[in-house]
């Protein structure tokens, strides 16, 4: 009994983790289903049909491609913009600092439905057509703040003495940035970029306000399909993305820990 009491937090943590992962397990399991009707809600019969033909459902791979494309462009742009803001906030004292902080915080404190709809009113007034460009603009906008937070956390831990040391040893400002500052901030920038990609890739609500019939992202495809029956391929892609994310992050961890061990 006391053993249970001592490990209470561990048990609670594991239970919560299971709660968080059960849907992924279900998604993986149902990717091997051969559903009876049009809804893939009940397990009928084991089948690898969807795995051997992941693009079998009409439009699914086009939407996936569009989502990946938007995700990459939006996360790169948001990472560039956000990293610059994070450096300004983390490295310089300047007037307008708290206003900047507020402006960075606001998009995170605004419901997506408000951001999506307000952007729609802007585009309506300016005559900007819905579609890929509109979606990109929106995604970059809501990703920037998250990148700023991730990079700023890292920049804050950097010792300014290291940059002074580089200058002292003859590195000009560009060399100092490329050889000292950037490599040291890289983990934060990578985390920010990954977060931005996942937010962009997964967004439905804001995208929906700015999409056109010719720009159906993957979440929009899933949403559309949920009404008329979700093809099993959606579950396949969901599982692959989950595993891919696990592999990417784990490899990153492995590389950095091996690099540390090598020199030991």
């Amino acid at each position: 009994m006391s053993w249970i009491k001592r490990h209470l937090i561990t048990f609670a943590a594991i239970a919560v983790l299971i709660y968080m992962l059960v849907p992924n397990v279900i998604v993986a399991a149902f990717s091997f289903n051969d559903p009876k009707g049009k809804y893939n809600y009940n397990f009928n019969e084991f089948s690898t049909a969807a795995w051997t033909n992941p693009c079998g459902a009409q439009g699914i791979c086009e939407s996936l491609g569009l989502s990946l494309q938007i995700g990459v462009i939006a996360s790169l742009a948001a990472t560039a913009l956000g990293t610059m803001i994070a450096f300004a906030l983390g490295r310089y004292r300047f007037r307008g600092r708290s206003a900047t902080n507020l402006l960075i915080f606001m998009p995170m404190a605004t419901p997506e439905v408000v951001m999506g709809s307000s952007l729609l009113t802007l585009f309506l007034m300016l005559g900007v057509p819905s579609g890929r460009t509109a979606i990109l603009i929106a995604h970059i906008m809501f990703c920037v703040s998250f990148v700023v937070v991730a990079v700023k956390a890292r920049v804050a831990t950097l010792d300014p003495k290291l940059e002074e040391a580089a200058a002292d040893l003859g590195a000009n400002p560009t060399q100092t940035f490329m050889r000292v500052t950037l490599p040291l901030a890289a983990p934060g920038i990578a985390a920010g970029a990954l977060l931005a990609f996942s937010l962009s890739f997964d967004d439905y609500i804001i995208t929906n306000f700015n999409a056109s019939p010719s720009s159906i992202t993957f979440p929009m495809y899933v949403w559309g399909a949920s009404a008329r029956g979700v093809p099993v391929q959606v579950y396949v892609i969901g599982t692959v993305m989950f595993l891919l994310a696990l592999i990417v992050v784990m490899t990153g961890q492995l590389i950095s820990s091996r690099r540390n061990r090598q020199v030991a």
Binding site: K161, L162, A165, A167, D168, L184, V263
Partner: peptide, 22 residues
């Protein structure tokens, strides 16, 4: 002259060694 142009070098109090380099 700028710090990086001076033939003067410093041993910093906290050493300021670059952690990402050997």
């Amino acid at each position: 002259t700028k710090a990086y142009q001076r033939n003067v070098n410093t041993v910093f109090q906290s050493y300021a060694l670059f952690p990402h380099m050997s």
